[in-house]
């Protein structure tokens, strides 16, 4: 059974968003997503300084099997990307909620995340999948 963490928000397309102490929001893909994708071999993240929009494409994750788009859970400016994924994309498989994060956003309006799924709602999405 895939891990669903309680303290973070999710999209039904399997991205997660975590509000950090400094007000930025970290984005990644869920344990369920990494498990469905299989071995991740390449991650394309947005550029630092670029704008991402809620519900819009912000990157791509490629597994041995297929390519999947990554959607941003919120609108804002990208302030950091996980450069370690360039050399070790498999970190997304081994640590989807920690070392395998994708990018950090300075949100335009953090309340956008209120519309995202909480852990219980996301668990239901995974069970139906």
């Amino acid at each position: 059974m895939s891990e669903v963490r309680n303290e973070i928000k999710y999209l039904s397309s399997h991205e997660w968003a975590r509000v950090e102490a400094d007000g930025t929001v970290t984005v990644g893909i869920s344990d369920h997503a990494q498990d469905s994708l299989g071995d991740v071999v390449y991650v394309e993240v947005p550029e630092v300084g670029s704008q991402v929009n809620a519900g819009e494409e912000a990157g791509v994750v490629e597994s041995v099997k297929a390519a999947s788009d990554i959607f941003s859970p919120l609108t804002g400016e990208v302030v950091a990307v996980n450069e370690a994924l360039e050399d070790e994309p498999e970190t997304v498989n081994s640590s989807p909620y920690d070392d395998g994060w994708f990018f950090k956003v300075k949100p335009a309006d953090v309340s956008e995340l209120d519309a995202a799924l909480d852990a219980d709602a996301y668990r239901e999405v995974c069970e139906d999948a």
Binding site: G38, D39, V41, S63, V64, K65
Partner: peptide, 12 residues
Amino acid sequence: PVQYPLGIKGEH
């Protein structure tokens, strides 16, 4: 079966 728990890369 497209893959087993070992995963495509591990199986390969």
